[in-house]
Design a protein around this nucleic acid. Structure first.
Lengths: 255, 255
DNA sequence: TCTTTTGAGAGAGCATTGCTCTCCTAAGTG
DNA sequence: CACTTAGGAGAGCAATGCTCTCTCAAAAGA
């Protein structure tokens, strides 16, 4: 009994050492094995993403992915410890894809045209969401599994928010924002801290209007992607643009 | 072979006749059997709703409900032909519960205080959603199963929208709405038809602002319920109220 | 009151899922 | 060249949705 325990501990210890050694040399040596592993990992996520786009998050099954790869299902677990980990990877990828779409859309507008940048960013979000409804549902819909680890997703999920903050910051510094007459309740003063860092110098009243516009935009996109506008609104892109123009006015973005 | 087929057809025919007879007499006779059936159906949905509240939509299993009822799983199928049908029932119930919460919240405000009615309705939605996050996710989150039948849900899902439309209609008739300067694009003219019926006399420009406010409200609630505000905004009810006040201003609702 | 119909629970069974084992081979390492 | 180890194969476990058949008691009809 004791010797068995000792053996186990020894084994675990040697594994730990091996893992440490592996970590220390990982960056230096790009062995063929590591390359094929990275390649297979990418192939798994690609297939999973494709299946996600057709079946939806609920229908994504590890076994189906394995089958499509010509692998046996247990082999997948060498690459992803669980189905939720695969989903988390897909979520992070989704955040990055959306963030990139927004960044590119916004970057296409002239820097001084703050209203144009806002509208471009909004359409960037909407167009991507409409084109990738299931991926969008994964990142901005109801949380699917028990609960995905939010820690890993933080760096990727703020990319779109950063774009908005940049627009508001630039517009404010350029004097292109009319400050609202009404102030935000003092109670909210500490809550704006994180946002204040993204938009230095911008008064809280403007920040809160930006938050309102932000949630309004995602509210619209949610409604549209999740089918709430079916059989009601046909010209959705136009209606969305008009709605976002209204929100620009609410934010005090000068025409 | 032929006789077997004929027997089957005969059997099916007699079943059909029995079903027709049953339908014809259903309303008149409330037998004990029907009462216990209704009672058990209600018990199933109650347990399902409770499990939904703790496990979420993904973790709702027919077998678990059956186990909790002391039934064998196959017996559940006498009451609901599939898991999706149970979910659809829950969705309709959710729409009705939310609709009722909104109606009650809005009814508590003085009729002439249109801004107060708007804010009350908004808080009605938010408070219910925060109190029943999984049910809210079921009705306003990403569509969970393959696709639920939207036809059955239509009567229940417009209750909240009707409340909003009533506020705007009353406010407009009372002259308490400032019409916006900018008009909506003509392209959207046909899309407002359904909404125009709910708010007779209200100009399209105001209707579209109401839609924007509506989506903004649900956008905020989505963000809050789905955890997008975690570790950022603490005083969420206050922030939500301020945001909805901003949207009232956007709609032109006079203070 | 007695026979017949029928609604509905029990139980076995099927295909599928996520995940965990143990084996075993071939690629990479000293 | 010996040997370590990453990783694929396959069986297996528990759970799921759903479909059968069997059976019995309650309701209906005479």
């Amino acid at each position: 009994m004791l010797s068995q325990k000792s053996t186990i501990r020894q084994e675990r210890c040697s594994r730990l050492l091996a893992a440490l050694w592996y970590c220390a040399h990982m960056t230096a040596s790009r062995t063929a094995r590591e390359r094929v592993r990275a390649e297979l990992t990418r192939e798994i996520t690609d297939i999973a993403r494709r299946r996600l786009a057709t079946e939806g998050a609920g229908g994504l099954s590890l076994r189906a992915v394995a089958r499509e790869m010509g692998m046996v299902s247990s082999a997948i677990y060498r690459y992803f410890p669980s189905r939720d980990d695969l989903l988390t990877t897909l979520i992070i990828d989704g955040y990055n894809a959306l963030g990139e779409a927004v960044e590119q859309a916004e970057a296409a507008a002239p820097r001084a045209d703050h209203l144009g940048r806002w509208l471009a960013a909004c359409h960037g979000v909407r167009d991507w969401a409409v084109a990738h409804p299931h991926e969008y549902a994964l990142i901005y819909g109801s949380p699917v599994p028990g609960y995905q680890a939010p820690q890993d997703t933080i760096p990727a999920r703020v990319r779109d928010l950063t774009v908005l903050a940049g627009i508001i910051r630039d517009a404010w510094q350029a004097g292109a924002v009319r400050a609202p007459e009404t102030e935000a309740p003092e109670e909210l003063e500490p809550d704006a801290a994180a946002l204040r860092e993204l938009m230095p110098g911008v008064p809280d009243a403007v920040i809160w209007r930006a938050v309102t516009a932000w949630t309004a935009m995602y509210g619209w996109v949610n409604f549209e992607v999740f089918g709430q506008f079916d059989n009601t609104i046909e010209h959705r892109r136009t209606a969305f643009g008009h709605s976002m123009l209204t929100m620009a006015e609410t934010m005090g973005l000068a025409q």
